[in-house]
Nucleic acid binder design. Structure first.
Lengths: 235, 235
DNA sequence: TAGTGGTCTAGACCACTAG
DNA sequence: TAGTGGTCTAGACCACTAG
């Protein structure tokens, strides 16, 4: 149970960076210097350095050396699953409808398709403690995801639905979080007052060529909206 | 400019996983098998496998082998800097006050300190296109971050302020995003109507022992709130 | 006991950097 | 030209797994 040499080297350099011995973009000791310092082989030194690169502490420039990487303080990890918003409170998901529709102007624009193409529209309503809380709309171009199986879409998040529907290697996604005035459909479903705004989380899903393959809009009654995100260091 | 062997192996296994040849938690070929398949040395095979581990595609169990890792679809990368919310529109940051205060009950609770301890309170107001848009409050226990230099705090995000103030090795942070009724101070600063709610982004900053070293509350006029987040695969 | 992944060594050749 | 990091080899010993 002794600590491996590569871990010793890793910890040593990491501590030097944390303590400020080496600062931003400063040159670190070369591989050969570290081989002598730690009395080990070059591959062992490289193992430690590669780990430091992977964890975002340093970067390398071939021919020059290894350098301290500037810390990124403003990136966070956000876990978002619109179908799993609340740990506390009873939750019920009602699948309102699954339709094949012709898109309106906005929807055609968001999915970058012609208005005469067809789109699968999925609408769901989430109840929290028996109150209407979240109204969820998803739109998928018809050709990209047939057939639709109700069981698969009832409880799944949008990325999960899409990945079941397509043989997708890699998808890209984007979330937008904003406040909007609600339309009549949403007002009715969530039993809102006339002027009450809703929190909107928009999801855009793209395939590997950045073509849209899904657009979603989740409307939260304000009382039921809360998100949290954790620090993601050095990424 | 030939592709290194380790990259060939990496690409090959990655493609097999993407195409569904290997599925969740399925055992991959052993290192020795891959050595034969690709007619190379074990260290080269390991380099490819380590890269696959680092990118979240596979995991290893010593004595057993390498396995396909389940994809995580619901994690996003959120870049949040309360002092840089808008690319478009002119922006002005006004430093309202920097005070040493005694915390009230809530603040003492959030910073987990006694009410007789002192706290540095920083208040800033952001104007977007000359309109009051964002009201920002930051609280730091006095002992952890003296002295306060105005130039350093005027334009910096909270994590940046904290990291300047402390010789911190590693901080942990958490964001909460929610809607709240605004208090009178915020109503006045943002020129809000009586009933108008505000969007709140709360920041908790902890040291390496998870002791709070900063608490922040940023209040957004609803018209000026928008966040976006990008997909972060396999993390 | 045979097979697995984890660590480590002592070499090699390469392209690139910078004086 | 000396030094740098990137790739690769052919070995070694280890702890752990599972029949």
């Amino acid at each position: 149970m002794v600590k491996p040499i590569n871990m010793t080297i890793f910890d040593s350099i990491k501590e030097d960076i944390d303590k400020g011995k080496y600062v931003n973009d400063q040159l670190l000791p070369s591989e050969n210097t570290l081989v002598e310092t730690f009395n080990t082989s070059r591959m062992t030194v490289r193992k430690a350095l590669l780990k430091l690169i992977n964890e975002g502490y340093i970067y390398s420039i071939p021919g020059k050396g290894y350098f301290v990487k500037k810390k990124e303080f403003n990136n966070y990890l956000l876990h978002y699953n619109e179908m799993e918003m609340y740990g506390e409170g009873s939750q019920e998901i009602r699948l309102l409808s699954v339709d094949i529709i012709k898109p309106n102007v906005d929807l055609a624009f968001n999915l970058r398709i012609q208005q005469n193409k067809r789109v699968v529209a999925i609408k769901r309503l989430l109840f929290i403690d028996s109150n209407e809380a979240i109204y969820d709309e998803k739109y998928i171009p018809y050709y990209s995801g047939i057939p639709i199986v109700e069981d698969e879409i009832h409880f799944s998040s949008f990325p999960e639905i899409i990945s079941n529907k397509t043989s997708l290697f890699n998808m890209t996604k984007k979330l937008n979080i904003k406040i909007e005035k609600s339309n009549n459909e949403i007002k009715k479903a969530l039993k809102l007052d006339v002027l009450q705004p809703v929190m909107i989380v928009e999801q855009f899903i793209y395939d590997e060529e950045m073509e849209p393959i899904g657009w979603g809009k989740t409307s939260f009654k304000l009382d039921y909206f809360e998100l949290s995100a954790k620090l993601l260091l050095n990424k």
